[in-house]
């Protein structure tokens, strides 16, 4: 089930808390599933003593993946035709993130009705960690 074009307006928005109090274990879980074992995401000794960061931080792709859940919950399964983001700030253990999508356009292309969305994910300090865009097919 997709969204219905005739019920959508530019400026409509949807948001979800995508993670509360992000754990180091979830970051490790993502490393295992994605195959990205960069020690900056899981190795406290390496990241503090060698890389020079205060602690481990999340993969950008984990934030993109969690933000994607908000998107598919909004537009429906299998409806995305494009999803792209910029990672604008790091995400740390303990962060609580809220992802938001806003309709920027409703349009027709090749006989399909599409919506363009502007996406942003912010942390508990209302700092942007991710910004982006998506396009989805609607009914």
């Amino acid at each position: 089930m997709g969204l219905k074009a005739d019920e959508l307006n530019v400026g409509d928005s949807y948001s979800e808390v995508i993670v509360e109090d992000l754990t180091r274990t979830q970051i490790v879980q993502y490393a295992g599933a994605s195959g990205d074992y960069n020690p900056v995401h899981s190795d406290e000794k390496f990241v503090t003593e060698v890389a020079g960061y205060p602690t481990v931080f999340a993969h950008g792709m984990l934030t993109m993946g969690m933000t994607g859940r908000m998107l598919t919950n909004y537009v429906g399964d299998g409806r995305l035709t494009y999803y792209g983001v910029r990672f604008v700030n790091q995400v740390w253990p303990g962060d609580t993130l809220t992802a938001r999508a806003e309709v920027s356009e409703v349009r027709e292309e090749d006989g399909q009705t599409l919506i363009d969305l502007t996406i942003s994910t912010t942390n508990q300090d209302e700092k942007f960690v991710l910004t982006g865009n998506a396009t989805a097919r609607v009914d």
């Binding site: 993670v19 993502y30 295992g32 599933a33 859940r69 598919t72 399964d77």
Partner: peptide, 10 residues
């Protein structure tokens, strides 16, 4: 496993 890691139980 991938869906679990991003917290998506869909």
């Amino acid at each position: 496993m991938f869906a679990r890691s991003i917290g998506d139980s869909n």
